[in-house]
């Protein structure tokens, strides 16, 4: 095993990957998600999102001038959009919903 500090185990995204993204100026969790692919695996960010938000807060605190140049990154920390399904669901079960009664 080569030495790695893993931020997102589902997608094998390392701390070095996240630091590279921050170094390139991505200071928003959604930007870092899109650049590195973290949070896009089977757990959908349950393990990596909060850790990454804390890394971003630290980076923003360390370089307030850069944050001022990027007003869109000044927003308060927010989670990336959690889309359904938030837990893995077999496709066969989802398929059962096809044509299901829409009335309650």
């Amino acid at each position: 095993m080569s030495e790695k500090c893993i931020v997102c185990p589902c997608e094998d995204v390392t701390l070095a990957d996240v630091e590279q993204a921050i170094g390139l100026g991505y200071l928003d969790i959604d930007e870092v998600k899109r650049f590195t692919g973290l949070g896009t695996g089977s757990c959908q960010g349950k393990l990596c999102m909060v850790t990454t938000c804390q890394l971003l807060q630290t980076a923003q605190a360390a370089d307030p001038q850069r944050v001022q140049r990027q007003p869109e990154a000044q927003r308060v920390p927010h989670p990336f959009t959690p889309r359904p399904p938030v837990v893995p669901v077999p496709l066969g079960v989802l398929a059962a919903g096809k044509g299901a009664d829409r009335e309650r």
């Binding site: 030495e3 790695k4 500090c5 893993i6 349950k46 393990l47 850790t51």
Partner: peptide, 10 residues
Amino acid sequence: AAQNLLFIDN
């Protein structure tokens, strides 16, 4: 959800 810490080979 349980969280991990950042360390080498975590």
